[in-house]
């Protein structure tokens, strides 16, 4: 059984993970992961496909109750998850999707939709929206809960490059306003450098690199500092240029 919040407690951190192991059958997909995230810190998690990123995120989200494993982890009570698919209920209007499970939250839902630039679309059906708009609704749904921790598993993975750039700007703005701790899973190195305060690299279930990102705003891929971090991260991912 996966242990949750074992002996760990959260004092100054938003997430604490120690010696986390998760197994599918005999194979350890996570093989002793240690991780701490500060309140309000934006951490990007990079890794090759199959390196265990989603497994780690699902462990933090408490969605892996049927997975074998050991280790300790502590997460705040108020966690929001953004999935790669927007996962909007197709039979509920946009506003009802945002306020899902909240009581008397229509006003907050409206504000949250306005924040992601979708004021006026409250009564639309999800499948009337574009992919990018759907993902913005999903963001509104997560942030209206004022999460202490925001978990996002390749939230922009299915979007086109232009929409993705706009979403980066939006996400940075939203995180600055709401200040959640963020763990963003991505396989896009540039995305991780643009968005995160710190990037960690997962490989075969272990954290193999960790880079604080300390670049002048706005972060530009043309910045020499940017290029330097990128080559360090690509190296850690085993991609040689």
């Amino acid at each position: 059984m996966a242990t949750h919040a074992g002996g760990l407690t959260l004092e100054k951190t938003a997430v604490e993970v120690r010696g986390l192991v998760r197994k599918y059958g005999e194979r350890a997909v996570l093989d002793g992961v240690d991780l701490a995230i500060q309140p309000g810190e934006f951490v990007a998690l990079l890794g090759k496909s199959g390196s265990g990123k989603s497994t780690l995120l699902r462990a933090l989200a408490g969605l892996d109750y049927d997975v074998d494993g050991s280790g300790e982890l502590a997460v705040p009570a108020n966690v929001s998850v953004v999935f790669q698919d927007s996962r909007l209920l197709p039979w509920a209007r946009v506003l009802d999707n945002v306020a899902l499970g909240l009581r008397a939250a229509d006003e907050r839902g409206r504000e949250s939709l306005a924040e992601v630039g979708l004021a006026g679309r409250e009564q639309a059906w999800p499948n009337e929206l574009s992919g990018g708009e759907q993902q913005r609704v999903a963001l509104a749904r997560s942030l209206v809960r004022e999460p202490v921790l925001l978990l996002a598993d390749e939230p922009f993975g299915a979007l086109d490059a232009l929409t993705r750039l706009k979403m980066h700007v939006l996400l940075r703005k939203l995180c600055a306003a709401h200040q959640p701790a963020v763990l963003l899973v991505t396989h896009d190195v540039d995305e991780s450098i643009v968005l995160a305060d710190r990037v960690i690299v997962l490989d075969e279930g272990r954290i193999v690199a960790e880079e604080p990102i300390d670049l002048a705003e706005p972060r530009s891929p043309a910045d020499p500092g940017f290029t330097a971090v990128r080559s360090i991260l690509l190296d850690a991912l085993g991609v040689s240029l």
Partner: peptide, 10 residues
Amino acid sequence: RYVELAETVG
């Protein structure tokens, strides 16, 4: 996936 969503939004 909707069941999972329902769990994450409590």
